[in-house]
Design a protein around this nucleic acid. Structure first.
Lengths: 192, 192
DNA sequence: AACGAAACCTACCGCTCACCAGGCAGCCGA
DNA sequence: TCGGCTGCCTGGTGAGCGGTAGGTTTCGTT
């Protein structure tokens, strides 16, 4: 195997796949997973539907790649979040409605029966709740208001982030997502 | 309850429509709106697809009826909520996963472009936020923690309810939705 | 008994979907 | 220079979609 060249076959193929995944993210944001046709994704990267199927043999395989992309995207730095970085994350999200829309649409679909992303989201939320509990403990210890534990607070934190996203996507003018999130954090850090 | 006698034509037609809407709620819960075929809804009430189209001329017309049903369902008693009744509402919801699933799936779809329920949800959330602000002011006055106003707290309250629903639908064993909601309310009512 | 409307049907249409089969061009290592 | 593999194409298929057209049965009203 030679590796001197600027771009070997494997690299080029991975580039192509990455392009396709990017296009799929867009189309899913616009039409949801069920509404996203392979043809629409293919057209966006200048392929025919069958050309796309060469890289991803089924529609579900493409979805798997999309979900893996998401895992890469918000991979926890050094294994755990810090609460103040969450604020930055929300602010960053507020500048990228596309990504938020993609995964909000997918989350909504995933609660329906037999949806191919259901298991992914179930496991993801288990993981994220645990991760958030760790972050909350690091920030507040056991001194959360009203004797709340980090484990009981984590689902609320996650719910606020998700719920705000829906309200914000529907009506960005009326909902200050980062501001509201900061308000929530202030509820946790009972002020000195 | 037999139809033949004490029921006039109009009443029977309305009964039929109500049956269809109920079936549509089920099918949407299972497959989302895009995934819900008229044929599937029709079969559930013992009709052909065209028999259904006699009562609702288009698929969108059926969706409108579904959304109207929801408005009737959670119509605010006497014009405004009381915060303690929200707890009961959440507890009640936790016993009816079907309804929650229907509207969580619809909410998720609604953020996609040109979705027929988008406007409905946008306006609904505007209304609900206002309604919640009123309820919060009635309960806590201006004395929310950290100088939060009812208007700024309302989006958080709504976000928590919605966000918890998704986590709960995906993994009811791991998420105590009513308990978590009570935790959130306890964050608002700073103790004593 | 006669009539008209409501309820529901069969048949059909054009379209879109995910996916299969088979072929062909171009590049790469041998 | 050749063989094979990768990338992508044309062509086609069966199923399912929402919706139309037009007929037939049912039934309350008169």
């Amino acid at each position: 195997m030679s590796y001197g060249d600027a771009m070997n076959a494997r690299t080029r193929s991975e580039e192509r796949r990455a392009e396709i995944v990017r296009a799929a993210l867009e189309v899913i944001a616009e039409r949801g997973y069920r509404g996203a046709s392979l043809a629409a994704v293919a057209e966006r990267v200048g392929l025919t539907q069958q050309g796309l199927l060469h890289h991803f043999p089924t529609k579900d395989a493409l979805l798997v790649a999309v979900l893996e992309e998401r895992d890469r995207w918000d991979a926890v730095p050094a294994g755990s979040w810090r609460v103040d970085l969450l604020t930055s994350l929300v602010e960053y999200n507020a500048m990228r409605p596309g990504i938020i829309q993609t995964f909000s649409a997918l989350l909504g679909e995933s609660v329906t029966e037999g949806h191919p992303a259901r298991e992914y989201f179930t496991e993801r939320y288990t993981r994220v709740r645990e991760s958030m509990a760790v972050a909350l403990r690091a920030e507040y210890g056991e001194r959360l208001p009203n004797g709340l534990t980090p484990e009981r607070t984590a689902p609320l934190l996650v719910a606020v982030m998700d719920g705000l996203q829906y309200q914000w996507l529907l009506d960005p003018e009326s909902v200050d997502m980062p501001g509201a999130f900061r308000d929530f954090l202030r509820l946790l850090g009972e002020e000195a």
